[in-house]
């Protein structure tokens, strides 16, 4: 019969091994590090078609992941898909007129949102334009590029390409082209 002390040591080793395994699963296997991006700012974009996009799909710019999709909803007024994304706090220099498109990663890959930087809207230009449209005097303001921040909305979007629509478009173009040729003859 094993002495109590040896028993206790082995039990300690066992528990430590179990916890280490759990730790390893948490660190190396799962997206624990990624979860630290919980602090960031949320932006919104509306798409005509958000097929295939899922919550937690990546959001990238220049091919680098800068955030994740946190919610996908349907707006019953505009009949559009409303996609909310959380961007890592570090990236606070994204121009306000960036565009968002839904791409596919690889042939069978999942959908992701790719942001393209805009030309760089000037802060004061936009504000002055708005004031003019509303018929009031523009407020004094400093220069500087407007950036995406919490609550910003991306105006220019490109929905995901659905295979069937692509084929349909291709076929109809092909038929049209054929038809035009015939008409031309």
């Amino acid at each position: 019969m094993m002495s109590t002390r040896t028993t206790e040591i082995w039990v300690g080793v066992f528990v430590a091994a179990g916890l280490a395994a759990l730790f390893m699963l948490a660190m190396k296997v799962s997206n624990l590090s990624a979860l630290n991006e919980e602090d960031g700012f949320t932006i919104e974009a509306r798409f005509e078609d958000a097929s295939g996009l899922k919550v937690r799909s990546p959001v990238t710019m220049a091919g680098v992941r800068i955030g994740r999709v946190v919610a996908i909803e349907f707006d019953k007024q505009s009949l559009q898909a409303v996609v909310r994304m959380r961007i890592d706090r570090r990236y606070d220099t994204l121009p306000a007129d960036s565009s968002a498109s839904i791409y596919t990663a690889g042939l069978l890959g999942e959908k992701y949102v790719g942001l393209e930087p805009g030309a760089g809207a000037d802060e004061c230009e936009e504000a002055a334009l708005e004031a003019e449209l509303e018929g009031r005097a523009p407020e004094p303001c400093e220069g500087g590029t407007r950036v995406l921040r919490d609550g910003s909305r991306i105006k220019i979007t490109q929905g995901s390409l659905v295979l069937e629509k692509l084929i349909a478009r291709f076929v109809s173009q092909f038929l049209e082209g054929g038809g035009k040729k015939e008409a031309a003859q």
């Binding site: 066992f14 528990v15 091994a17 179990g18 916890l19 280490a20 395994a21 759990l22 390893m24 699963l25 190396k28 296997v29």
Partner: peptide, 16 residues
Amino acid sequence: FISMPLLAAIFSAVGV
């Protein structure tokens, strides 16, 4: 009750 999750974690870890 205590041992099971530890054993399962070890199983998954060595499996990976």
